[in-house]
């Protein structure tokens, strides 16, 4: 990250950076295994536009994939995950540092159509919970049906886990989940997950 040519990346603090060791130490292996880590600084762009309007197709082209229109679904490309947040709202998640490029491409796609593109990368950090026991850990604080018959890779949801509002994104069938949570709630959620993984 640079501002006027000065490198600032070394100044960044992720909300859970100080917990990295504890998160790593909580790993359990084997058939009941579970792993927990923070993926800091992911690029996150909030996109709003009319899914039936001309900007939708242009945005799809810019992203390299159609905008998901099914509630709670995710479309993934090699670099990006596009999460459905609402009938006219998406969250585009990319790698650390990718936000300016994505924002620029989406702004061009939106053009003069009504809508918005907002870089919300600093809004949330990401916790990744994975391993054979990940689902049962999550289920201790989440009332959604996360069984494979109802939820799986390619699905996302905005819901609450342990009363914390977050975006839940299932990455693969192991299962692995990403929990995109506000910075101010991240510590609480991490503490709760550390406690729940110990059960």
């Amino acid at each position: 990250m640079t501002v006027d040519g000065f490198a600032l990346a070394h100044l960044r603090r992720s909300p859970l950076g100080h917990l990295a060791d504890r998160l790593a130490a909580a790993e359990a292996t084997g058939p009941g295994g579970v792993r927990l880590r923070e993926i800091p600084f992911l690029a996150q762009l909030n996109l709003r536009l009319d899914p039936a309007g001309p900007a939708a197709a242009r945005a799809a082209e810019a992203l390299g994939a159609p905008l998901p229109t099914l509630a709670g679904s995710v479309v993934a490309t090699a670099d990006l995950r596009v999460l459905w947040l609402g009938p006219d709202e998406w969250l585009v998640v990319g790698a650390d540092g990718a936000a300016p490029t994505i924002e620029h491409a989406l702004r061009r796609a939106l053009g003069d159509e009504p809508g918005s593109v907002v870089d919300v990368s600093a809004n949330r950090t990401t916790l990744e919970l994975s391993g054979p026991s990940a689902r049962s850990v999550l289920e201790q604080g989440c009332s959604l049906d996360l069984h494979p018959r109802a939820f799986g890779p390619g699905r996302c949801a905005q819901t609450t886990v342990a009363k914390v509002q977050l975006v839940l994104d299932q990455i693969d069938a192991e299962p692995s989940y990403r929990l995109l949570v506000r910075g101010s709630f991240a510590q609480y959620l991490a503490d709760w997950l550390l406690d729940a993984t110990g059960e």
Partner: peptide, 10 residues
């Protein structure tokens, strides 16, 4: 209507 059944607390 979009997300399906959820708890009242949401």
């Amino acid at each position: 209507p979009w997300c399906g059944e959820r708890d009242e607390t949401e």
